[in-house]
């Protein structure tokens, strides 16, 4: 049965050990519902593996495999090739990892799998820091964010430097489909997952997933914060299909970034000047996206 556009059937059983209000598990549940049963999931080390598979228990009702932190794309390459040689073209391979696994330590194996044209979907559940190890900065952590390795100190206030533009880097590999999504818009996520899985070749979807302890928000605020990320253009939703960028949805009236930042403990140290700088960055980035919308910005090589 389909309820509110999603399969009633769960592929990720309840009773796992994720935090109350975990954004990542919401994304994961709905990616699975969108993908259906004929899949194999390859998971990078991170919260999701730890909370869902304490041996001998498992939350996974689809075939699932985990190896290490930095190699989900390489393991997926092996799974895909083996399926091909078994004559199984039907089963889809989905690799998943957090932003640490995807942006940083697993970047080489991810790039390699995309360069080889591996037929799989890579889903990055991005909560903008290494949450599993206790909220350390990552290549996806926004500027000024307070993490345990970029604390708000007397001299240095949060993260120095900006986010790595990973969706663009992967699109520049000649990828046919790259998209961003958010737990605040699950229908959009579903559509993007299904589109990605219909494409032969590597595809990438990055989902913004608020983290309750990492972002220092209330367990009940996960979706509100994700919604605010959308409303303020902090995390724009777009897709790059065959090299052409489309902003898939945008707020009717962009809200000030201040609203998003004050909801979260990780930004509580920001002064008005820093907030203004963030506002400027967000607006410039969105204007850039609008300026390239509808144009072929990358060649599709694969």
């Amino acid at each position: 049965m389909v309820i509110l556009g999603f399969e009633e059937k769960e592929f990720f059983a309840s009773g796992h050990r994720a935090c109350a209000g975990c954004g990542e598990t919401i994304a994961l549940r709905h990616v699975l519902k969108a993908a259906g049963e004929k899949i194999i999931v390859v998971q990078a080390t991170g919260c999701m593996e730890v909370v869902s598979t304490p041996y001998p228990e498992t939350s996974w009702e689809v075939p699932w495999i985990h190896c290490a932190f930095e190699n989900a794309a390489a393991v997926a390459s092996g799974v895909r090739a083996a399926l091909n040689m078994k004559g199984d073209k039907e089963t889809k391979v989905i690799a998943m990892g957090g932003d640490g696994a995807t942006y940083d330590i697993g970047f080489g194996s991810l790039s390699g799998a995309f360069e080889r044209g591996t037929n799989f979907l890579y889903v990055c559940t991005n909560n903008e820091a290494y949450m599993n190890t206790g909220i350390q900065r990552s290549g996806a952590t926004p500027e000024y964010t307070s993490t345990t390795t970029t604390p708000d100190g007397k001299v240095i206030h949060g993260k120095v430097g900006v986010k790595k533009p990973l969706p663009f880097i992967l699109a520049a590999h000649g990828t046919k489909y790259v998209a961003t999504a958010s737990v605040t818009n699950l229908f959009d996520l579903k559509k993007k997952v299904q589109k990605a899985l219909s494409i032969n070749g590597p595809t990438y979807i990055e989902v913004l997933v608020p983290c309750v302890p990492g972002w220092k928000i209330d367990a009940s605020a996960t979706l509100d914060v994700a919604k605010s990320a959308f409303d303020t253009n902090a995390f724009p939703l777009f897709e790059i299909e065959n090299g052409v960028l489309t902003i898939t949805s945008k707020p009717e009236a962009r809200k000030p970034i201040h609203e998003y930042l004050v909801m979260q403990g990780r930004f509580k140290h920001l002064n008005p000047e820093q907030m203004e700088r963030i506002q400027k960055g967000v607006d410039e980035h969105f204007a850039f996206l609008e300026s390239i919308q509808g144009k072929k910005i990358f060649e599709t090589l694969l």
């Binding site: 390489a74 092996g78 083996a82």
Partner: peptide
């Protein structure tokens, strides 16, 4: 590193 990782995925898929 990816060779060993793919090896792992290949055997998990049974070939």
């Amino acid at each position: 590193h990816s060779a060993a990782s793919a090896l792992f995925g290949i055997y998990a898929t049974g070939v």
